[in-house]
Simulated assay, not measured.
Amino acid sequence: MSDSAQARLSAAERERALDELTRHFVIGRLDAAQFDERCHRAIEATTKQQLAWLFTDLPAYAAPPPPAPADPIAPRLAVIIGAIVSFTVVLALTSGNWAWWLLLVGAAVVVPVYVRIAR
């Protein structure tokens, strides 16, 4: 046997094994009794070989896909909306004219158009 198979386990490796067993249970590859038995064996395992045995009949679990990149429009859109609202409030309060609030209605039309063009 190779030295890596007889290597002692760390707590993090046991945790990863338990997480993977949980995923297989949730997907339906293990029933409750199998899941319980394998979790107990994973906790009691001392070597990597003992841990690997628990997964011999299970397919390797693919890592979840990386998170989608952040929307580049969102920060610019927040700045534009904040500027329009601030500008409207300042103009309405300083002039005493309610008509400036119509800028917010205009913004409700302009912002979706901007988003569509920016994408």
Rank of each mutant, 00 (worst) to 15 (best):
S2L: 09
S2G: 06
S2V: 04
D3P: 02
S4W: 09
S4Q: 10
A5N: 15
Q6I: 14
Q6H: 05
A7L: 03
A7D: 15
R8M: 14
A11E: 15
A12C: 00
E13N: 11
E13Y: 07
E15I: 07
R16T: 13
L18V: 09
L18E: 14
D19Y: 06
D19H: 10
D19C: 03
L21G: 01
R23E: 13
R23S: 01
H24C: 08
F25K: 08
V26Q: 11
V26M: 05
I27M: 06
G28T: 11
R29E: 07
R29L: 04
R29S: 05
D31P: 09
A33C: 00
A33R: 09
E37Q: 13
E37T: 07
R38H: 11
C39L: 07
H40R: 15
A42N: 09
A42Y: 08
I43N: 11
E44T: 14
E44K: 13
Q49A: 15
W53E: 12
L54D: 01
F55R: 06
T56Q: 14
T56A: 09
T56D: 11
D57V: 02
P59T: 06
P59H: 08
A60F: 00
Y61T: 08
A63L: 12
A63V: 14
A63S: 10
P66F: 02
P66Y: 06
P67N: 09
P69I: 00
A70C: 09
A70W: 03
D71A: 12
D71Y: 10
D71K: 13
D71T: 05
P72S: 10
I73C: 07
P75D: 10
P75C: 06
R76M: 13
R76W: 10
L77H: 06
G82K: 07
A83L: 15
A83W: 04
V85H: 02
S86I: 07
S86R: 08
F87Q: 03
T88Y: 04
T88P: 06
L93P: 01
L93S: 10
T94C: 14
G96Q: 01
G96D: 05
N97K: 04
N97A: 12
W100M: 02
W100N: 07
W101F: 15
L102G: 07
L103A: 13
L104S: 08
A107R: 06
A107G: 14
V110M: 11
P112F: 03
P112D: 03
V113T: 09
V113R: 11
Y114G: 06
Y114H: 01
V115H: 04
V115T: 04
R116V: 02
R116G: 04
R119S: 14
